[in-house]
């Protein structure tokens, strides 16, 4: 199969670079066929465990921050490469110390979508066809249309080929998505304010404050000095109250405005299935409208909230306010 030969080429490329690197971040098989798990490859034997297929959902760029001084290889999909570009733009990583293995990608699984369609808790295997996903379950095979179980970001993906790479393990893929219409957001915004508030109250009430959303985010780089954990100043109470849970998500969305590449790791990582990516998409649409800016596509660009102009084109100057 094409994917298998690509994995073989990836392994070969990684092995060739290993002598120059501290380690390579890649994917290996997880606890079952539907799960990949990140691996840091140090030896040839580690490299032989590498896999690449639509189960490789994690954005490995999350593990880059805080590794300064190390020479690291990293396996990236198109979407993941945007996180790397954003980290470069913010001078949080040194490009020279990275060796990027680019994997053009036709989309990854959204296991939440799969779960709605099939009980995969006892899955025995999976095979990926051009248009379908074949699940091997205890009671037989189950075939699902590929489009039905790909992550939303993949259905609207405009960058299936990594935007930055040292080794492109092709072939390159044609882009699947058109300009983002934000249809999901538009539909949500048709609800009344009260309905939207009630929606978020309901959703956020099951948050357990595990901060998987924050820790899985490649651009949440404050780590353990996060505002959410600060006792001085005491922004958030330690209590698992609705207002604390909600305030953190608002903070997260605001701190990612103009930085978020919508890799979706926050939402995918949420054990309680809270649709928090919608908040980031809201911010991104506003940024797109105000500054015609898209995060993580141009290493040379300055994120709009990292700079300012006295006269912003699309922000109405309200004059002296006091």
């Amino acid at each position: 199969m094409a994917e298998e030969s690509r994995t073989a080429r990836l392994i070969e490329a990684v092995k060739a670079e290993l002598p120059n690197l501290d380690f390579v971040l890649g994917y290996s098989r997880g606890f079952d066929a539907l799960h990949a798990t990140p691996i840091s490859v140090r030896t040839g034997a580690d490299a032989d465990q590498l896999v690449f297929d639509p189960t490789c959902v994690e954005n490995l760029a999350t593990s880059l921050y805080g590794q300064s001084g190390k020479r690291i290889g990293i396996v990236v999909k198109g979407c993941d490469s945007r996180s790397i570009i954003e980290l470069m733009q913010e001078k949080l990583i040194v490009r020279e110390n990275l060796v990027i293995f680019g994997m053009p990608c036709r989309g990854v699984l959204d296991l939440a979508k799969v779960r709605v369609r099939a009980d995969i808790t006892q899955a025995r295997g999976v095979a990926f066809g051009a248009e379908e996903v074949r699940l091997l379950l205890p009671d037989g095979e189950r075939v699902l249309p590929r489009r039905d179980v790909l992550a939303d970001k993949c259905l609207r993906c405009r960058y299936p080929n990594p935007l930055v790479a040292d080794h492109m393990i092709g072939p390159e893929v044609e882009r699947a998505g058109e300009e983002d219409s934000y249809a999901d957001l538009m539909a949500f915004e048709k609800l009344t304010e009260q309905e939207r508030f009630d929606f978020w109250k309901r959703q956020m009430s099951r948050c357990i404050r595990c901060y998987a959303c924050r820790n899985a985010c490649p651009l949440c780089v404050c780590k353990h000095v996060c505002l959410a954990d600060s006792r001085e100043p005491h922004w958030l109470s330690a209590e698992a109250n609705l207002q604390e849970k909600w305030l953190f998500q608002v903070m997260h969305a605001l701190h990612l405005a103009g930085r978020c590449t919508e890799c979706g790791e926050c939402q995918r990582s949420c054990p309680m299935g809270i649709p928090i990516l919608l908040l980031k998409r809201k911010m991104n649409r506003e940024l797109k409208e105000l500054f015609n800016y898209e995060a993580g596509v141009d290493p040379e660009a300055v994120p709009p909230l990292h700079t300012f102009q006295m006269e912003e084109e699309k922000i109405k100057d309200r004059g002296q306010l006091w």
Binding site: F23, T62, S63, C210, Y211, A212, A216
Partner: peptide, 16 residues
Amino acid sequence: TDESARCLSCGVCTYL
């Protein structure tokens, strides 16, 4: 270090 290389240090495991 090898066993924890993939860990995100979040609280999912302990809270669930």
